[in-house]
Amino acid sequence: MSDSALLSRATLIIDQVSAEKPADYVLRGVLGADKDLHPSEKRDISRAVFIYYRWLNWLDKSASTQSRVASALDLQRKFDTDPSYFKTETLAARAVPEWVHSEIDLTSDYLRHLQSDSALWIRVQKEFAAALPRSLGNLAPSPSPLVPEARRDTTLRYTGQTDLFKTSEFHQGVFEIQDLASQLVGYAANPKSTETWWDTCAGEGGKTLHLSELMENKGLIWASDRNTGRLATLRKRAGRAQAFNYRAVTWNGGPFLPTKTKFDGILIDAPCSGVGTWQRNPHARWTTTPNDVKELAEIQLQLLNHAAPALKPGGRLVYAVCTLTKSETTKVANAFSAAHPDFIPDPVLGQGPQLHLWPHELNANGMFIAAWKRKA
């Protein structure tokens, strides 16, 4: 695709984006419907759109959209050549909204990571761990010591150019596309094959499927969500992955629980502001508000309070959010601990009971994980 064609395509998409129609939503709709574009062209267009929002505060608002896209691409090339060209103070002022400064301790490494392209991670079914690197290629294990030794060959970064969703291995359930930080939540839960777990906010099932694989398709997982459409997608994904040890139910997060079952473990992967995904989805930097954070923090604490009674004595409660704001992480975890003295903070992945996963340290999304054990 020529530079002019790329600019034109990206401009057409950006002109459709709004707070109600986020960039990733518009990209899926426009590019998904275009059967003439090659996957590499779609990838280039997506990257150009995300680069535009990554460098939005550097652009001349009086210029045309196409000129601003061109300027953003130039800024990205400068950054990729020499990240130090952009001072930390400038990045702090322009790469994120002002309200974030009171919610996150902004460092030079973190800010520069936000302005770079995101990594793509996959989780391989253990029985295919040896064969997939040979058939797919361009795979490398995570260097993070947080990944359990036994899972180093299944937690892999993909560096190739193939559209993974179209590979036969994906359609056969050999692997799932799942960010490293998300996989670490499953490893932090560490469910056993003899246990019963509850994935309270299962969504489309990414973490449910990981729990299932860790449990060797044994035991039982209750997977709940308020959205029946997401649960329908979970069922399709579970069929592809040959995961059968789950039961999908609706739950709106309220005090009336979907079952009287008492669980060995509960995972609350709560809805959040998604600040930890801002490298991958830079448009969200400019649509997320402090009020969103405040409202979500209230929902997160409510979910913890409502789900906690379903945990068995001696059971493990894991709270995870793909955000890094203080309001949604430590403040929520500390408030829950203060209100529930029968829940004892428990180590996460061999670290303390509260773990921040920083994007620049993982080369992945940002995540916060906290864990407790209920007194026996």
Rank of each mutant, 00 (worst) to 15 (best):
M1D: 07
A5L: 15
A5W: 15
D15Y: 00
D15T: 13
S18V: 06
A19P: 00
K21G: 04
V26H: 01
G29N: 12
L31V: 05
G32Y: 05
D36H: 14
H38Q: 15
S40F: 01
E41A: 15
E41R: 14
A48V: 02
F50D: 15
W55V: 07
L56I: 13
W58E: 15
K61A: 14
Q66N: 03
Q66E: 15
R68M: 10
T81P: 00
D82C: 11
S84Y: 00
T88Y: 12
E89N: 07
A93W: 02
R94T: 03
S102R: 04
S108H: 09
H113I: 03
H113F: 15
L114W: 00
I122K: 00
I122L: 11
K126H: 12
A129P: 01
L132D: 10
P133M: 11
L139Q: 05
S142K: 07
P143T: 12
P148I: 12
D153W: 14
T155M: 08
R157M: 11
Y158C: 13
L164C: 04
L164T: 10
F165G: 13
K166N: 14
T167R: 14
S168A: 15
G173L: 12
F175T: 03
E176H: 11
L180G: 05
S182P: 09
L184K: 07
K192Q: 13
T194A: 12
E204D: 10
T208L: 02
H210Q: 14
L220P: 01
I221T: 04
D225I: 01
T228Y: 12
G229L: 07
G229Q: 14
R235D: 10
R235K: 13
A238K: 06
G239Y: 09
R240W: 07
R240C: 06
A241S: 14
A241H: 05
A243R: 05
A248C: 05
G254R: 00
G254I: 04
K260T: 10
K260S: 06
K260N: 11
T261P: 00
F263K: 04
D264R: 01
D264P: 03
A270K: 03
S273E: 10
R280C: 04
R285S: 01
T289G: 08
T289Y: 06
P290R: 07
P290F: 01
Q302V: 10
L303V: 14
N305A: 07
P309H: 08
A310F: 14
K312N: 04
V321C: 08
V321A: 11
T329H: 04
P345V: 09
P345E: 10
P347G: 09
G352Q: 09
L357I: 07
W358C: 11
E361I: 05
L362I: 12
A371W: 10
K375E: 12
K375G: 01
